[in-house]
Amino acid sequence: MKKLLILPLAAIAMFAFSPSTNDVIEPGKKLPAVNIKDMAGNPINTAEATNDGNPIIISFWATWCKPCKLELNTIAEEYDVWQEETGVKLIAVSVDDQKTTNTVEPVVNAAGWEYDIWMDPNGDFKRALGVNFVPHTFLLDGEGNIVYSHNNFVPGDEEVLYEHVKEVSVK
């Protein structure tokens, strides 16, 4: 009986706890340099992310994070079109720790995502960018300046993101 009442309260509390959404558009900042690895184990210096002068989306996610996967699945449905129209590339940065880090590759493959995947199991890149919660998405213009960032995801956010991608696309 007691637990029955606690549950909805806990549920409300959990949702109220999810961070509020704030969009920051303050150009000029570049990615900090952090040494991490990609999914294949190749070393990555995060400051050296390039896409031939086209925009880059950096999306922090985890295999256990439902809105993250919803965001990446939603974008995946449109990704071909986005790439064709703007040349944008998406880098999905997994913040999975060792409990789930080995499931990243099977999850990515099963979902059929065509993204670049970076691994940040120790949270170094996450901390350097000041990311507290996933999903948290950044948009870089062709010169590598962070022009937009957004956290949390509800359907429709991908349209807003894509508006910003189109703004900075040189295509």
Partner: peptide, 20 residues
């Protein structure tokens, strides 16, 4: 509950952070 991320960059100095 609020979280925000803010940036500035000046002559090679970069500042990142957040408030919660």
């Amino acid at each position: 509950l609020g979280t925000f991320v803010s940036f500035s960059q000046q002559e090679g100095l970069s500042v990142t952070g957040n408030v919660e």
